[in-house]
């Protein structure tokens, strides 16, 4: 699924990387626990309600490049700056974690485990 389709399905806005929405993604992982993200061997789209600079740092360490923030959370300027340095894409949806995951799963995004 392209990021453009994800953005449309989630009624989302793009916080960073609006020029990269043609990118295809297949796998998704949802967590507010960054320790869990650091155990991943793959590099899925991350769905999270944790919106702070450690979310971006963790993604940098784990080589994750696409983050969907749920429940209307918006990244701060510091987060966007750090994410930009790492060529990341930040997407913001007003939907809850549960609804976001349900929509993405129903649309064919795959789980890692």
């Amino acid at each position: 699924m392209t990021l453009k389709e994800i953005v449309d399905k989630l009624g989302a806005t793009v916080g960073l990387g609006a020029d990269k929405l043609d990118r295809e993604e297949e796998y998704c992982f949802a967590s507010d626990l960054m320790s869990d993200v650091l155990t991943l061997k793959d590099t899925p789209v991350l769905v999270t309600g944790l919106c702070n600079v450690q979310t971006i740092r963790t993604c940098d360490m784990a080589n994750l490049e696409v983050v969907i923030f749920v429940r209307g959370k918006r990244p701060t300027e510091d987060m966007v700056e750090l994410a930009d340095e790492n060529d990341m894409i930040l997407i913001c949806t007003p939907y809850s974690m549960f609804k976001t995951c349900g929509i993405l799963y129903g649309a064919g995004m795959k789980p890692l485990y």
């Binding site: 626990l33 869990d36 155990t39």
Partner: peptide, 12 residues
């Protein structure tokens, strides 16, 4: 609150 502290650090 920062997304850590689940007792996974040292084992990881």
């Amino acid at each position: 609150d920062m997304g850590f502290g689940a007792g996974m650090g040292l084992p990881n």
